[in-house]
Simulated scan of single mutants.
Amino acid sequence: MTLMNYLSEKLMLLFLNLFCSIALSIYFILLGNSFPSVLPVLFVWAFILAIVWGSGYYRQKKKAEQIFHQLDLLDQKYLICEMLEKPVTNEDKLYCHILRAACKSMLENVNHLKQSNRDYKEYIEEWIHEIKTPITAIDLICKNNPDSEERRIGKELSRIGDLVEQALYYARSEHVEKDYFIREFALFDAIGPALMQNRTLLLEEHIRLQVEETADTVCTDEKWLTYILSQILSNSIKYHKPTGAFIKISASRTKNSVSLIIEDNGQGIPPEDLPRIFEKGFTGSTRGNRKSTGMGLYLCRKLCLKLGLAIRADSVFGEGTTITINFPDSTYNRPGQDN
């Protein structure tokens, strides 16, 4: 609140006081008093008015600053009415009553939406677990009848399975802390399962794989890390070169962290697309006929942030892409922070 804003609200009173002071001056002059003798009365009037309005402005300004300070401290701004002092004036009581009614309605809506979201999430997770059963059964049938048609069906079935898995991890990504188990383990223990999940595509696309074994250990959730690596590998496979494609996985240690590096020589990412590849739903300008949901790398970054890891992409269009995941030594103590 500024002084000009405060005075603009008092404009009618200001004109009224000005009119009254002029009328009083004329009255005193008509009674035979000189104008200089009337001036002290006008000065006293103006002084009292300045004191009253000045103190009123100061009180309102301090009150507004206090309310805004309390508002800044709140994560859920709609709870501000619970922090307000008991109103004194009738006008303040009226506004406070309106604000409390609005906040109550907001809280009821928020609680309803939270419950609806929980119910929907539980349904999605249950549905995903149920749909996995027929997918697994069809996959076994295809593997037991390995002709060309079954292989094609198996490939599409694998894609369905990946999308179902992606939906499950997306449903859980808002509350990773309820599902993860942080422990120290060998980094290679998460790389192996991720490679196994993509082994069929790696073989079918004739992609050369180079994995540098590492004895480094990291402190995070193994299951979630395996999913992140599987998504990155899936992207590298999807955008591989027609011939001579390779994927290289290595690790390096610095003083305070371990970095996992997944490098490929695929088509790369255009410079204008690179800053957006971790955005939700972004599919890029060079995907061609490849099917993409734009959720894979978005989930990777989201899960990395939840786990306290940093993920970065470097790419040269036409030459390949490098994804680096950084594991700070203090990850266990700092979940949910970007590094």
Results as ranks from 00 to 15, higher is better:
residue 213 E to A: 09
residue 134 P to S: 04
residue 225 L to F: 13
residue 164 V to C: 09
residue 245 A to G: 12
residue 116 S to M: 08
residue 211 V to W: 04
residue 218 V to I: 05
residue 162 D to L: 13
residue 124 I to W: 00
residue 212 E to F: 02
residue 195 L to Q: 04
residue 124 I to L: 11
residue 227 Y to D: 13
residue 206 H to E: 11
residue 216 D to M: 07
residue 137 A to T: 11
residue 236 S to D: 06
residue 158 S to P: 00
residue 236 S to W: 01
residue 174 E to S: 13
residue 189 D to G: 04
residue 117 N to F: 05
residue 211 V to K: 01
residue 149 E to Y: 14
residue 112 H to L: 09
residue 231 Q to F: 04
residue 134 P to N: 05
residue 118 R to L: 10
residue 129 H to I: 01
residue 136 T to Q: 14
residue 116 S to W: 01
residue 206 H to D: 15
residue 224 W to R: 10
residue 133 T to D: 14
residue 217 T to Q: 12
residue 116 S to T: 12
residue 133 T to Y: 05
residue 137 A to H: 11
residue 120 Y to L: 15
residue 234 S to Y: 08
residue 200 T to F: 06
residue 114 K to S: 08
residue 235 N to M: 02
residue 216 D to G: 05
residue 168 L to Q: 12
residue 184 E to L: 05
residue 172 R to P: 03
residue 226 T to I: 01
residue 212 E to H: 08
residue 201 L to Y: 07
residue 112 H to A: 10
residue 186 A to I: 03
residue 98 I to L: 15
residue 132 K to F: 02
residue 201 L to N: 12
residue 232 I to C: 06
residue 195 L to C: 01
residue 177 E to Q: 12
residue 132 K to P: 00
residue 205 E to M: 11
residue 121 K to C: 06
residue 118 R to H: 08
residue 169 Y to S: 06
residue 214 T to N: 02
residue 132 K to Q: 12
residue 196 M to I: 08
residue 111 N to E: 06
residue 214 T to F: 00
residue 169 Y to E: 04
residue 152 R to N: 15
residue 240 H to W: 02
residue 180 Y to K: 04
residue 171 A to P: 09
residue 203 L to P: 03
residue 244 G to R: 00
residue 226 T to N: 15
residue 105 S to M: 09
residue 110 V to Q: 03
residue 193 P to K: 03
residue 193 P to L: 03
residue 137 A to W: 07
residue 127 W to T: 10
residue 145 N to V: 01
residue 167 A to T: 10
residue 143 K to L: 10
residue 204 E to N: 15
residue 104 K to E: 11
residue 215 A to W: 06
residue 236 S to R: 00
residue 186 A to L: 14
residue 141 I to S: 07
residue 153 I to D: 04
residue 209 L to N: 10
residue 129 H to C: 04
residue 164 V to G: 07
residue 199 R to K: 14
residue 191 I to L: 01
residue 232 I to R: 00
residue 236 S to H: 05
residue 119 D to I: 04
residue 120 Y to W: 07
residue 156 E to Q: 09
residue 179 D to E: 12
residue 120 Y to C: 15
residue 140 L to P: 01
residue 219 C to T: 15
residue 240 H to M: 05
residue 107 L to W: 03
residue 219 C to V: 08
residue 135 I to H: 03
residue 186 A to C: 06
residue 174 E to F: 10
residue 179 D to S: 10
residue 196 M to W: 03
residue 171 A to H: 06
residue 98 I to M: 11
residue 235 N to A: 04
residue 216 D to E: 15
residue 181 F to W: 01
residue 108 E to F: 13
residue 234 S to F: 13
residue 108 E to N: 12
